[in-house]
Simulated assay, not measured.
Amino acid sequence: MKKVLMVCLGNICRSPLAEAILQSKVNSKEIVVDSAGTADYHTGKQPDIRSIEIAAKFGLDIHKQKARTFEVRNFDTFDHIYVMDKSNYQNVLELARDKNDVLKVKMILNELHPNKNLEVPDPYYGGDQGFKNVYNMLDEACDVIAKQLQ
């Protein structure tokens, strides 16, 4: 079974969406998808209501997800770790123990735009359109990831 982890800052906006989007595109008997944040601001809390609402508009239910913090042991659990931005990338790499850990970590939009290191913007302080834009970016990236995992 392959295991994929989506990572953003607080695990309440981008990574919960990425988790649900990828889950909807893969066979759950073959691929496990989870999410985490690099900061512990929201540990144990539901995703941002705006993420819940945009997910629901596309037929995904994320209201039962609970924010958690990325931990070193995630390198042992997950085969692929996708981060949303450069800050998340650096925060995750700071916990890497060796080259194998480092090789698991990728910027998610590099799946659409290889080696460009484009970031999924944090929609937290923006309006509803920001959440829709983020959803669309993640949906496209997850299409590519799902095909690679098959």
Rank of each mutant, 00 (worst) to 15 (best):
K3T: 13
K3I: 10
N11F: 03
R14Q: 08
A20K: 11
I21D: 03
Q23R: 15
S24C: 04
I31S: 10
V33T: 07
A36W: 05
Y41E: 03
H42D: 09
T43L: 13
T43N: 12
Q46E: 08
P47K: 06
D48Q: 05
I54E: 01
A56T: 03
A56D: 10
G59T: 09
Q65I: 05
A67D: 03
E71N: 12
N74Q: 04
F75E: 07
D76W: 01
F78N: 01
H80D: 09
H80A: 01
I81F: 05
I81G: 02
S87E: 13
N88F: 12
V92L: 06
L95D: 01
L95S: 04
R97C: 01
D98N: 15
V105T: 03
V105L: 02
L109F: 07
N110Q: 10
N110P: 00
E111F: 11
N115G: 10
N115T: 11
K116Y: 05
L118M: 14
E119F: 10
G126M: 13
G127S: 09
Q129T: 11
F131M: 05
F131R: 05
N136Y: 15
N136G: 10
M137L: 15
L138R: 01
A141M: 13
A141I: 08
K147N: 12
Q148I: 13
Q150H: 14
Q150V: 14
